[in-house]
Protein backbone atom coordinates (compact mmCIF):
# COMPACT_ATOMS: atom_id res chain seq x y z
CA UNK A 1 0.00 0.00 0.00
CA UNK A 2 2.75 2.45 0.97
CA UNK A 3 4.63 1.44 -2.13
CA UNK A 4 1.53 2.15 -4.14
CA UNK A 5 1.28 5.66 -2.74
CA UNK A 6 4.97 6.36 -3.36
CA UNK A 7 4.58 5.15 -6.93
CA UNK A 8 1.70 7.50 -7.49
CA UNK A 9 3.65 10.42 -6.07
CA UNK A 10 6.52 9.57 -8.38
CA UNK A 11 4.15 9.76 -11.32
CA UNK A 12 2.95 13.17 -10.19
CA UNK A 13 6.32 14.87 -10.62
CA UNK A 14 6.33 15.05 -14.43
CA UNK A 15 2.68 16.13 -14.35
CA UNK A 16 3.66 18.88 -11.97
CA UNK A 17 6.39 20.16 -14.28
CA UNK A 18 3.97 20.04 -17.21
CA UNK A 19 1.50 22.13 -15.27
CA UNK A 20 4.07 24.81 -14.50
CA UNK A 21 4.85 25.14 -18.19
CA UNK A 22 1.25 25.23 -19.32
CA UNK A 23 0.08 27.64 -16.65
CA UNK A 24 3.05 29.88 -17.44
CA UNK A 25 2.47 29.89 -21.18
CA UNK A 26 -1.32 29.94 -21.18
CA UNK A 27 -1.76 33.44 -19.86
CA UNK A 28 1.12 34.88 -21.90
CA UNK A 29 -0.37 33.55 -25.11
CA UNK A 30 -3.45 35.69 -24.64
CA UNK A 31 -3.22 39.04 -26.39
CA UNK A 32 -2.67 42.09 -24.20
CA UNK A 33 -0.58 42.40 -21.07
CA UNK A 34 -1.17 43.37 -17.44
CA UNK A 35 0.30 46.84 -17.67
CA UNK A 36 -1.91 47.87 -20.58
CA UNK A 37 -4.97 46.56 -18.80
CA UNK A 38 -3.94 48.21 -15.56
CA UNK A 39 -3.77 51.54 -17.36
CA UNK A 40 -7.20 50.96 -18.82
CA UNK A 41 -9.02 53.48 -21.02
CA UNK A 42 -6.80 56.38 -20.09
CA UNK A 43 -3.83 54.90 -21.89
CA UNK A 44 -0.21 55.11 -20.90
CA UNK A 45 2.95 56.78 -22.19
CA UNK A 46 5.65 54.68 -23.79
CA UNK A 47 8.20 55.50 -21.10
CA UNK A 48 5.92 54.74 -18.21
CA UNK A 49 4.88 51.47 -19.94
CA UNK A 50 8.48 50.32 -20.41
CA UNK A 51 9.22 51.32 -16.85
CA UNK A 52 6.35 49.25 -15.41
CA UNK A 53 7.11 46.26 -17.65
CA UNK A 54 10.65 46.37 -16.35
CA UNK A 55 9.48 46.69 -12.79
CA UNK A 56 7.37 43.52 -13.06
CA UNK A 57 10.13 41.75 -14.94
CA UNK A 58 8.01 41.19 -18.06
CA UNK A 59 10.69 42.68 -20.29
CA UNK A 60 12.92 39.70 -19.63
CA UNK A 61 13.08 36.87 -22.17
CA UNK A 62 10.45 34.16 -21.61
CA UNK A 63 12.88 31.47 -20.47
CA UNK A 64 14.26 33.87 -17.88
CA UNK A 65 10.76 34.62 -16.58
CA UNK A 66 9.97 30.92 -16.46
CA UNK A 67 13.15 30.22 -14.55
CA UNK A 68 12.32 32.93 -12.02
CA UNK A 69 8.87 31.42 -11.68
CA UNK A 70 10.40 27.96 -11.02
CA UNK A 71 12.90 29.30 -8.52
CA UNK A 72 10.04 31.06 -6.79
CA UNK A 73 8.05 27.82 -6.61
CA UNK A 74 10.99 26.04 -5.06
CA UNK A 75 11.08 28.72 -2.39
CA UNK A 76 7.36 28.47 -1.91
CA UNK A 77 6.87 31.90 -3.43
CA UNK A 78 4.36 32.37 -6.22
CA UNK A 79 4.94 36.06 -6.62
CA UNK A 80 2.70 39.02 -6.01
CA UNK A 81 -0.60 39.74 -7.70
CA UNK A 82 -0.32 42.75 -9.97
CA UNK A 83 -3.80 44.03 -9.34
CA UNK A 84 -3.99 43.59 -5.57
CA UNK A 85 -0.27 43.75 -4.73
CA UNK A 86 -0.75 40.88 -2.31
CA UNK A 87 1.17 37.60 -2.41
CA UNK A 88 -0.59 35.15 -4.73
CA UNK A 89 -0.47 32.39 -2.14
CA UNK A 90 -2.22 34.36 0.58
CA UNK A 91 -4.73 35.66 -1.95
CA UNK A 92 -5.44 32.09 -3.02
CA UNK A 93 -5.86 30.70 0.45
CA UNK A 94 -8.12 33.53 1.54
CA UNK A 95 -10.48 32.70 -1.27
CA UNK A 96 -9.99 28.94 -1.33
CA UNK A 97 -12.36 28.06 1.54
CA UNK A 98 -15.26 29.58 -0.37
CA UNK A 99 -14.55 27.37 -3.37
CA UNK A 100 -13.92 24.37 -1.19
CA UNK A 101 -17.17 24.86 0.68
CA UNK A 102 -19.07 25.10 -2.58
CA UNK A 103 -17.26 22.12 -4.10
CA UNK A 104 -17.76 19.94 -1.03
CA UNK A 105 -21.44 20.77 -0.95
CA UNK A 106 -21.73 20.09 -4.67
CA UNK A 107 -19.99 16.73 -4.51
CA UNK A 108 -21.96 15.80 -1.41
CA UNK A 109 -25.16 16.67 -3.22
CA UNK A 110 -24.03 14.72 -6.28
CA UNK A 111 -23.21 11.62 -4.24
CA UNK A 112 -26.24 11.73 -1.98
CA UNK A 113 -28.60 12.00 -4.93
CA UNK A 114 -26.60 10.27 -7.66
CA UNK A 115 -25.71 7.09 -5.79
CA UNK A 116 -29.26 6.11 -4.80
CA UNK A 117 -30.54 7.18 -8.21
CA UNK A 118 -28.02 4.89 -9.88
CA UNK A 119 -28.88 2.01 -7.57
CA UNK A 120 -32.60 2.43 -8.23
CA UNK A 121 -32.04 2.62 -11.98
CA UNK A 122 -30.07 -0.64 -11.82
CA UNK A 123 -32.68 -2.39 -9.71
CA UNK A 124 -35.44 -1.34 -12.10
CA UNK A 125 -33.38 -1.90 -15.20
CA UNK A 126 -35.36 -1.28 -18.35
CA UNK A 127 -38.40 -0.07 -16.46
CA UNK A 128 -39.81 3.40 -15.83
CA UNK A 129 -37.57 4.41 -12.89
CA UNK A 130 -34.53 3.42 -14.91
CA UNK A 131 -35.62 5.45 -17.92
CA UNK A 132 -36.48 8.41 -15.70
CA UNK A 133 -33.07 8.42 -14.01
CA UNK A 134 -31.11 7.88 -17.21
CA UNK A 135 -32.96 10.55 -19.16
CA UNK A 136 -32.60 13.07 -16.35
CA UNK A 137 -28.91 12.23 -16.10
CA UNK A 138 -28.43 12.74 -19.81
CA UNK A 139 -30.18 16.10 -19.70
CA UNK A 140 -28.22 17.14 -16.61
CA UNK A 141 -24.98 16.08 -18.20
CA UNK A 142 -25.55 18.00 -21.41
CA UNK A 143 -26.93 21.13 -19.74
CA UNK A 144 -24.53 24.07 -20.22
CA UNK A 145 -23.67 25.30 -16.73
CA UNK A 146 -24.20 28.95 -17.54
CA UNK A 147 -27.63 28.38 -18.96
CA UNK A 148 -28.63 26.01 -16.18
CA UNK A 149 -27.52 28.53 -13.55
CA UNK A 150 -29.50 31.35 -15.14
CA UNK A 151 -32.54 29.12 -15.45
CA UNK A 152 -32.47 28.31 -11.76
CA UNK A 153 -31.91 31.93 -10.82
CA UNK A 154 -34.86 33.03 -12.93
CA UNK A 155 -37.10 30.39 -11.41
CA UNK A 156 -36.09 30.31 -7.76
CA UNK A 157 -34.77 33.82 -7.22
CA UNK A 158 -36.75 35.70 -9.81
CA UNK A 159 -40.20 34.16 -10.03
CA UNK A 160 -40.45 32.39 -6.69
CA UNK A 161 -38.16 34.67 -4.72
CA UNK A 162 -36.97 31.79 -2.55
CA UNK A 163 -33.23 32.16 -2.84
CA UNK A 164 -30.77 35.03 -3.10
CA UNK A 165 -29.02 35.64 -6.39
CA UNK A 166 -25.43 36.16 -5.40
CA UNK A 167 -22.77 36.09 -2.71
CA UNK A 168 -22.23 33.77 0.23
CA UNK A 169 -24.35 35.43 2.88
CA UNK A 170 -26.63 38.41 3.33
CA UNK A 171 -24.85 41.72 3.90
CA UNK A 172 -26.83 42.07 7.13
CA UNK A 173 -24.47 39.69 8.78
CA UNK A 174 -20.90 40.37 9.54
CA UNK A 175 -18.56 38.24 11.55
CA UNK A 176 -14.87 37.36 11.42
CA UNK A 177 -13.80 34.40 9.33
CA UNK A 178 -12.67 31.56 11.60
CA UNK A 179 -12.63 28.51 9.37
CA UNK A 180 -13.41 30.23 6.09
CA UNK A 181 -16.44 27.99 5.72
CA UNK A 182 -19.51 30.16 5.83
CA UNK A 183 -21.74 27.37 7.11
CA UNK A 184 -19.50 26.85 10.13
CA UNK A 185 -18.56 30.48 10.72
CA UNK A 186 -22.20 31.56 10.64
CA UNK A 187 -23.00 29.02 13.33
CA UNK A 188 -19.98 30.08 15.38
CA UNK A 189 -21.02 33.71 15.15
CA UNK A 190 -24.16 32.92 17.09
CA UNK A 191 -26.07 35.54 15.09
CA UNK A 192 -29.67 34.57 14.58
CA UNK A 193 -30.52 33.79 10.99
CA UNK A 194 -26.93 33.82 9.79
CA UNK A 195 -26.78 30.09 9.18
CA UNK A 196 -30.07 30.08 7.30
CA UNK A 197 -28.81 32.91 5.15
CA UNK A 198 -25.60 31.01 4.37
CA UNK A 199 -27.57 27.90 3.46
CA UNK A 200 -29.96 29.77 1.20
CA UNK A 201 -27.02 31.32 -0.62
CA UNK A 202 -25.44 27.92 -1.09
CA UNK A 203 -28.40 25.99 -2.48
CA UNK A 204 -28.48 27.14 -6.08
CA UNK A 205 -24.71 27.16 -6.69
CA UNK A 206 -24.53 23.69 -5.14
CA UNK A 207 -27.18 22.37 -7.49
CA UNK A 208 -25.63 24.02 -10.52
CA UNK A 209 -22.12 22.82 -9.76
CA UNK A 210 -23.28 19.37 -8.60
CA UNK A 211 -25.43 18.55 -11.59
CA UNK A 212 -22.78 17.17 -13.94
CA UNK A 213 -21.01 15.08 -11.28
CA UNK A 214 -24.43 13.87 -10.18
CA UNK A 215 -25.29 12.69 -13.67
CA UNK A 216 -21.91 10.98 -14.06
CA UNK A 217 -22.13 9.31 -10.66
CA UNK A 218 -25.69 8.10 -11.30
CA UNK A 219 -24.70 6.56 -14.61
CA UNK A 220 -21.53 4.98 -13.25
CA UNK A 221 -23.36 3.62 -10.21
CA UNK A 222 -26.02 2.12 -12.41
CA UNK A 223 -23.60 0.30 -14.66
CA UNK A 224 -21.46 -0.87 -11.74
CA UNK A 225 -24.53 -2.12 -9.92
CA UNK A 226 -25.83 -3.94 -12.99
CA UNK A 227 -22.54 -5.75 -13.26
CA UNK A 228 -22.39 -6.59 -9.57
CA UNK A 229 -26.01 -7.70 -9.21
CA UNK A 230 -25.32 -10.63 -11.51
CA UNK A 231 -22.37 -11.79 -9.47
CA UNK A 232 -22.40 -15.13 -7.68
CA UNK A 233 -21.70 -13.55 -4.31
CA UNK A 234 -24.90 -11.55 -4.49
CA UNK A 235 -26.75 -14.82 -4.96
CA UNK A 236 -24.81 -16.24 -2.01
CA UNK A 237 -25.89 -13.29 0.12
CA UNK A 238 -29.49 -13.95 -0.80
CA UNK A 239 -29.01 -17.65 -0.12
CA UNK A 240 -28.17 -16.73 3.46
CA UNK A 241 -31.67 -15.36 3.87
CA UNK A 242 -30.48 -11.78 4.23
CA UNK A 243 -33.00 -9.02 3.67
CA UNK A 244 -32.91 -7.41 0.19
CA UNK A 245 -31.80 -4.12 1.69
CA UNK A 246 -28.70 -5.73 3.12
CA UNK A 247 -27.99 -7.76 -0.01
CA UNK A 248 -28.16 -4.69 -2.23
CA UNK A 249 -26.99 -2.00 0.15
CA UNK A 250 -24.05 -3.95 1.54
CA UNK A 251 -22.98 -6.90 -0.60
CA UNK A 252 -23.69 -5.40 -4.00
CA UNK A 253 -23.11 -1.71 -3.35
CA UNK A 254 -19.84 -2.27 -1.51
CA UNK A 255 -18.41 -3.83 -4.67
CA UNK A 256 -20.06 -1.37 -7.02
CA UNK A 257 -18.50 1.50 -5.06
CA UNK A 258 -15.00 0.55 -6.17
CA UNK A 259 -15.34 1.98 -9.68
CA UNK A 260 -17.69 4.70 -8.47
CA UNK A 261 -15.08 6.06 -6.06
CA UNK A 262 -12.71 6.48 -8.98
CA UNK A 263 -15.37 8.31 -10.90
CA UNK A 264 -16.02 10.63 -7.99
CA UNK A 265 -12.30 11.36 -7.81
CA UNK A 266 -12.15 12.16 -11.50
CA UNK A 267 -15.08 14.52 -11.04
CA UNK A 268 -12.99 16.74 -8.74
CA UNK A 269 -11.10 18.15 -11.71
CA UNK A 270 -14.36 18.69 -13.57
CA UNK A 271 -15.69 20.36 -10.45
CA UNK A 272 -12.98 23.02 -10.45
CA UNK A 273 -13.69 23.80 -14.07
CA UNK A 274 -17.38 24.05 -13.23
CA UNK A 275 -16.63 26.17 -10.18
CA UNK A 276 -15.13 28.89 -12.36
CA UNK A 277 -18.41 29.31 -14.22
CA UNK A 278 -20.65 28.76 -11.22
CA UNK A 279 -18.80 31.31 -9.12
CA UNK A 280 -19.03 33.82 -11.92
CA UNK A 281 -22.77 33.32 -12.29
CA UNK A 282 -23.44 33.62 -8.57
CA UNK A 283 -20.71 36.16 -7.77
CA UNK A 284 -19.30 33.59 -5.40
CA UNK A 285 -16.09 35.04 -3.99
CA UNK A 286 -13.95 31.98 -4.56
CA UNK A 287 -10.98 30.81 -6.59
CA UNK A 288 -12.99 30.42 -9.76
CA UNK A 289 -14.20 33.98 -9.84
CA UNK A 290 -10.74 35.18 -8.85
CA UNK A 291 -9.13 33.22 -11.70
CA UNK A 292 -11.54 34.68 -14.24
CA UNK A 293 -10.94 38.19 -12.94
CA UNK A 294 -7.19 37.62 -12.98
CA UNK A 295 -7.31 36.30 -16.52
CA UNK A 296 -9.20 39.40 -17.66
CA UNK A 297 -6.60 41.56 -15.95
CA UNK A 298 -3.79 39.49 -17.45
CA UNK A 299 -2.50 39.21 -13.92
CA UNK A 300 0.33 36.86 -14.89
CA UNK A 301 1.50 35.88 -11.39
CA UNK A 302 -2.04 35.35 -10.11
CA UNK A 303 -3.03 33.17 -13.08
CA UNK A 304 0.08 31.04 -13.25
CA UNK A 305 0.19 30.67 -9.47
CA UNK A 306 -3.53 30.01 -9.15
CA UNK A 307 -3.55 27.38 -11.89
CA UNK A 308 -0.57 25.68 -10.31
CA UNK A 309 -2.23 25.57 -6.89
CA UNK A 310 -5.46 24.25 -8.39
CA UNK A 311 -3.50 21.55 -10.20
CA UNK A 312 -1.74 20.60 -6.98
CA UNK A 313 -5.04 20.32 -5.17
CA UNK A 314 -6.56 18.18 -7.91
CA UNK A 315 -3.50 15.92 -7.80
CA UNK A 316 -3.74 15.63 -4.03
CA UNK A 317 -7.40 14.76 -4.23
CA UNK A 318 -6.70 12.13 -6.85
CA UNK A 319 -4.01 10.69 -4.63
CA UNK A 320 -6.52 10.58 -1.81
CA UNK A 321 -8.96 8.81 -4.10
CA UNK A 322 -6.32 6.25 -5.03
CA UNK A 323 -5.67 5.57 -1.37
CA UNK A 324 -9.39 5.27 -0.63
CA UNK A 325 -9.69 2.99 -3.62
CA UNK A 326 -6.98 0.80 -2.14
CA UNK A 327 -8.65 0.79 1.25
CA UNK A 328 -12.03 -0.16 -0.11
CA UNK A 329 -10.70 -2.84 -2.45
CA UNK A 330 -9.04 -5.61 -0.43
CA UNK A 331 -7.40 -7.03 -3.55
CA UNK A 332 -5.31 -3.90 -3.91
CA UNK A 333 -4.73 -3.41 -0.22
CA UNK A 334 -2.90 -6.70 -0.03
CA UNK A 335 -0.59 -6.29 -2.97
CA UNK A 336 2.75 -5.05 -1.80
Amino acid sequence: MLRLILNKIGLLIPTFIGVTIISFLFIRLLPGDPVLLLAGERGITGDRYADLMHQFGFDQPLWRQYLDYLVGILHGDLGTSISTRRPVISEFFTLFPATMELSLCAIFFAVVVGLPAGVIAALYRGKTPDHAVMTTALVGYSMPIFWWGLLLIILFSGILGWTPVSGRISLLYYFPSVTGFMLIDSLLSGQAGAFESAVSHLILPTIVLGTIPLAVIARQTRSAMLEVLDEDYVRTARAKGLAPFRVIGLHALRNALIPVITTIGLQIGVLFAGAILTETIFSWPGIGKWMIDSIFRRDYPAVQGGLLLIAIIVMLVNLLVDVTYGLINPKIRHTR
Binding site: D232, A237, H251
Partner: peptide
Protein backbone atom coordinates in the same frame (compact mmCIF):
# COMPACT_ATOMS: atom_id res chain seq x y z
CA UNK B 1 -17.64 -21.58 -8.23
CA UNK B 2 -16.42 -21.07 -4.67
CA UNK B 3 -14.17 -18.17 -5.54
CA UNK B 4 -16.82 -16.00 -7.16
CA UNK B 5 -19.48 -17.10 -4.70
CA UNK B 6 -17.73 -15.34 -1.84
CA UNK B 7 -17.83 -11.58 -1.62
CA UNK B 8 -14.34 -10.21 -2.40
CA UNK B 9 -14.85 -7.20 -0.14
Amino acid sequence: EPTTSLNPC
